[in-house]
Amino acid sequence: MIKASKLAYEYIRRDEEGNVEGVVRALDGVDLDIKKGDFVAILGHNGSGKSTVAKEINAILEPTEGVLFVNGFDTSKEEDVWNIRQSAGMVFQNPDNQLVASVVEEDVAFGPENLGVPTNDIISRVAYALERVGMTAYRTSSPNHLSGGQKQRVAIAGILAMKPKCIVLDEPTAMLDPNGRKEVIATIHELNREEGITILLITHYMDEVVDCDKVIVMDNGKVVMQGTPREIFSRPEEIKQHKLDLPQVTELACELRKDGIKMPDGVLSVDEFVEAFVSKYGKK
């Protein structure tokens, strides 16, 4: 679905007078291989290059070096830009700044309208997309009356109506409250499971990546860790080095191991912790 090889992106930083101050290498030799139907998370602190990856995939930025293929299209080829954007839709961080129309259904229709989809098709696509994210009841509302989580779901519906193969979400929950975050994460898991849409979730919240197929950790424009959530969470020291957090249970298990208590590696959830602890220290 998405394949990158030695992908690099550089931009020139200028001072106030426009003089070149230096070259920033935001991406540095990134290799990616994301298969169809995967749910992949990219983790990293701000400035680690994770958002640049998203913009590369959407052909908003062009690679300085290396190649990137999305759904078989080369992102450096100008003529494929619209095909790429249709196959890999993008959801951004700020829920307000990506909704165009002042009526929910008209906003969802914006993408298909741009693609030149016939009117009757648009109507059925919009109905399907809103149904899928559970926002049908708000069809005729103004986005201004929705909560953050609901707005993000409308944004996802707007992408869904373009019938993409893959959805890239660039920190979609950073500006939401805990309930909004849950709504959005549940929605994208459902899309992945039931519609087989490939998901690339970019985030810095560790607890959101626990249920992913694969986690990629980025730092300094490079991929520094890669694997299943369990593999990644089994390396707590490394995670901290890359300025990331651990979920509380993972951290607790890790601390306890230091104390000599026998806890397994990479504990992901409360249930896992409880089972592991009770089997060792519970009443026999």
């Binding site: 619209w82 229709a109 914006f110 741009n114 016939p118 009117t119 648009i122 992408i159």
Partner: peptide, 15 residues
């Protein structure tokens, strides 16, 4: 742009 907006050409309408 990410939602393929490129002006009026070839654009259709839901309503």
């Amino acid at each position: 742009e990410a939602r393929c907006y490129r002006g009026d050409d070839g654009r259709t309408s839901m309503k």
